[in-house]
Design a protein around this nucleic acid. Structure first.
Length: 558
RNA sequence: UGGGCGAUCGUCCAACGGUAGGACAUGCGGCUCUGGACCGUAGAAUCGGGGUUCGAAUCCCUGUCGCCCAGCCA
């Protein structure tokens, strides 16, 4: 698609991989993984991670795995794994048969833990959660050793076994790594490896009542799968010493963890915790609300996966925190849609126009180009009659300077049809314009005047008798501030006008049966797609994906 | 006197001791049967201070600013 010259910018991760290949590290293999927790939907920030994980593997002829990080049964659901898989497939990635779950490794992880206990590197702690917190110390003061830290290997083995057997209630004991309670890195102050959780797991059912913590599960899972480069976001940077420690203690294959900055986008929030608040608080219609930055939301909004991927390539990868201008995403989207979306005419806010000198009852089938950017797209016929609808905004009784559209006495072109001139304005009792009377020039058929005279404006229109009714939903940014998080209560920055629903819109007749998900450019408006859940044949619902660039709007503002 | 990370146009990313470059955004012009697309053009940056070097965004020292970490979440 759009990708200008398909030379992706270099980045520090690519540098590391190339260096590793050069040094024949891991026998020159590149094997990555994307490790989502099935506790929510994927958003465009995840797309960045996926494109990095999977894109880099593809680029260097390697493999990539999908691994669900399902170590916390109380938050995770099968529904989320299905949706996550759907979204990744939509992006166009195929993990083949390498679909794994951290829970696949629970037995192995348990074995590893026993090994660490035997080596005197892990112990069962009876301290309560609150006590562990107290013993941990603070950011500036060292922690204290737990009184249970020096239990014998035998006692630890026995207790750990009984933890697994379900002898103790939730929270009674944990297994901790024995590292250094005085470390400046809090992650190294004897981190918890296992906690007791008598909860059913979406895959392992009731088999386990102890569950591994992220730090304990993640690196070992990477190792088991033979991962070479394990990318994650920078918040895990100070977990890397622990990641390395576990692997070194065990003496098993040691992948390299590499951290990059997560994506931030202007006028939106990208954190599962915040997004779930929007969903649960019913500020949006669901995870796939077209205003959501989730992949399912973007898809329903009409985004193409190509545009999302191209965006991820274009923003690059670095370690510094940043906020990408959503205008870049929209630019890439338009660029893609401009080449592929068929043009059609849709009148969102109709104003009736009667062409007085056009024969009553006559119907002309005019030829219209489907996509000027794509000759292959061909042409179609559209009906023209005496009564048509134009956009209310395209008429002004008292036009300002630079207004090129219709006004009394002025002539404009009807796209693909004739020049018309406004002769009379009809108003109701309240002074509201109800209809316009115009005349047309038969010598301007298909939009060109034989005498060479020019018009400044070209309007879109639909034949009143033939038009189909449609509902059109105009979406705008979800938040009013570039950075909605700059205020304590980000919800207060929600854009009250993020959705405007228009009914009684008039569209070309063929659009009435347009298939769900199909995308169009509504001439002079923007790109729209048929909504996947609310649209019905004969009663179409269109979502505005993104508007056209609007220089007229800029002139008006300035 | 806890630990870690980061700082380049308004924004995002490059430049790996050798002319600071691209994209988005913005301004101006052109073209146009979409006030779209397209074409052209302009302005716009190396956090501060020292040092090394023929030469520093890059190496060294120092300062400043920003972010992350005290879940039995990931």
């Amino acid at each position: 698609m759009a990708e200008e010259n398909n030379t992706k910018p270099s980045n520090f991760i690519r540098d590391i991989i190339e260096e590793d290949i050069k040094n024949n590290k891991n026998d020159g293999r590149v094997h990555t993984r994307f490790p989502p927790e099935p506790n929510g939907y994927l958003h465009i920030g995840h797309a960045k991670a996926i494109c990095l994980d999977y894109g880099l593997a593809e680029e260097y002829g390697g493999k990539y795995n999908l691994r669900f990080d399902d170590t916390n049964p109380v938050k995770e659901e099968t529904h989320y794994v299905e949706m996550i898989k759907k979204d990744i497939r939509w992006l166009g990635f195929d993990w083949e048969d390498r679909e794994f779950y951290a829970s696949d490794y629970f037995d192995q992880l348990y074995e590893f833990a026993v090994r660490l206990i035997r080596d005197g590197r892990a112990y069962v702690d009876d301290l309560s959660a609150e006590e562990i917190k107290e013993y941990r110390g603070t950011l500036t003061e060292p922690g204290k050793n737990s009184p249970w830290r020096d239990r014998t290997v035998e006692e630890n083995l026995d207790l750990f076994e009984r933890m697994k057997a379900g002898e103790f209630p939730d929270g009674a004991r944990v297994l901790r790594a024995k590292i250094d309670m005085a470390s400046g890195n809090l992650n190294m102050r004897d981190p918890v490896m296992y906690r007791i959780l008598h909860a059913a797991h979406h895959r392992t059912g009731d088999k386990w009542c102890i569950y591994p913590m992220y730090d304990w599960a993640h690196g070992q899972s990477d190792s088991i799968e033979g991962i070479t480069h394990s990318m994650c976001d920078i918040s895990f940077e100070d977990h890397r010493p622990l990641y390395d420690w576990f692997l070194d203690q065990l003496g098993i294959h040691h992948p390299q963890q590499i951290e990059f900055a997560r994506l931030n986008l202007t006028y939106t929030v990208l954190s599962k915790r915040k997004l779930i608040q929007l969903v649960k608080g019913e500020r949006v219609s669901g995870w796939d609300d077209p205003r959501m930055p989730t992949l399912s939301g973007l898809r329903r909004r009409g985004y193409t996966s190509e545009a999302v991927r191209c965006f991820c390539d274009r923003i690059g990868a670095a370690k510094r925190e940043s906020i990408v201008d959503v205008a870049l995403l929209e630019h890439i989207l338009r660029d893609d849609l401009n080449k592929s979306a068929p043009r059609v005419m849709a009148v969102l806010n109709p104003l009736k126009v009667i062409i007085d000198n056009y024969p009553e009852g006559k119907v002309e089938e005019l030829e219209a180009v489907n996509n000027p950017e794509d000759p292959e797209a061909g042409t179609r016929k559209i009906p023209f009659t005496r009564e048509i609808y134009i956009e209310r905004d395209d008429f002004l009784e008292d036009p300002p300077k630079k207004f090129f559209r219709l006004s009394p006495g002025r002539e404009v072109r009807l796209k693909h049809a004739y020049f018309i001139k406004c002769e009379k304005v009809v108003k109701d009792d309240r002074g509201e314009i109800v209809e316009l009377h115009c005349t047309y020039d038969p010598a301007t058929k298909s939009g060109e005047a034989t005498d060479g005279r020019k018009v400044k404006g070209t309007l879109h229109w639909v034949s009143a008798a033939h038009a189909a009714d449609a509902v059109v939903r105009l979406y705008d940014r979800l938040f009013i501030k570039e950075n909605p998080l700059e205020d304590e209560d980000f919800m207060s920055n929600l854009n009250p006008d993020s959705l405007e629903i228009l009914t009684g819109c008039k569209v070309e007749p063929s659009l009435s049966e347009a298939p769900v998900g199909s995308r169009f450019q509504f001439l002079r408006h923007g790109y729209f797609c048929v909504d996947s859940t609310d649209s019905k044949p004969g009663a179409p619902v269109f979502n505005r994906t993104v508007g056209l660039r609007d220089s007229w709007a800029k002139i008006q503002q300035g």
